[in-house]
Design a protein around this nucleic acid. Structure first.
Length: 209
DNA sequence: GGCCAGGACACCA
DNA sequence: TGGTGTCATGGC
């Protein structure tokens, strides 16, 4: 996959805080729309926990509007900031220093943060070896017969974590590569498996076996 | 004009 | 536990 697409350099974001905001804002939303919202925040000089905390909900909602679901996302962002301020004196470094399992549970307890968003934060902002499962990953695995379409999140996650070394840098780009494969070759209506680098490699490996 | 995008959650049986 | 509706903008 990397030979075909090159390193994907995920996650786009200048700071860890920006990565976290991106994880919250990209839920069921194209990254292009997320970038518009992040650009709004940057222009408003609100891309830090302190500045963002001081923003009234109405103003924050207007800035987040291009990313869609802006009312929900406003609540999610403010909920995260409340947790950060109440539990960690607003220090992202302190929060992200928590042991992986505890941090994951804390994130999941916040409203607006589910498994994928929590794991994106763990991997891309905190650098933990946690494999992220998203809709593209599901589609690619199902398309290649590597997992059932109904498999649970944790089943798919352990599939990767069992078979790959626990290396955050590897997980990082591996997930991004799967998304690239999903976007490029695993279309719902007209998948192009013949040209798919993953499909070709799997065919080779089956032929060898 | 319809479909979909790097989901989460409430509600229901 | 599993299925369904809702949330919303913007690009194609």
């Amino acid at each position: 996959m990397r030979r075909h697409f090159g390193h994907q350099n995920w996650w786009p974001g200048r700071t860890r805080f920006e990565v976290i905001l991106g994880a919250l804002l990209t839920q069921n939303t194209s990254w292009a729309n997320v970038e518009k919202a992040l650009a709004n925040l940057r222009q408003a000089r609100a891309l830090s926990p302190e500045k963002l905390t001081s923003l009234p909900a109405g103003r924050l909602a207007r800035l987040l509007r291009p990313s869609g679901y802006f009312r929900q996302k406003t609540r999610a962002v403010q909920g995260f900031l409340r947790h950060l301020n109440n539990g960690y004196q607003g220090s992202l470094a302190r929060l992200l220093r928590r042991p992986t399992a505890e941090l994951r549970a804390e994130l999941l307890a916040l409203s607006g943060i589910g498994e994928e968003t929590a794991d994106s934060i763990l991997l891309y902002a905190a650098g933990r070896p946690v494999f992220v499962i998203d809709a593209y990953t599901r589609r690619v695995l199902a398309r290649h017969g590597l997992a059932s379409a109904q498999a649970r999140y944790d089943e798919l996650q352990s599939f990767f974590e069992r078979h790959l070394p626990a290396d955050p840098a590897l997980y990082n780009d591996f997930h991004a590569q799967l998304v690239a494969v999903g976007k490029t070759f695993c279309h719902r209506e007209r998948p192009d498996c013949a040209a798919c680098p993953l499909g070709v490699e799997l065919e080779r490996s089956h032929a060898r076996a």
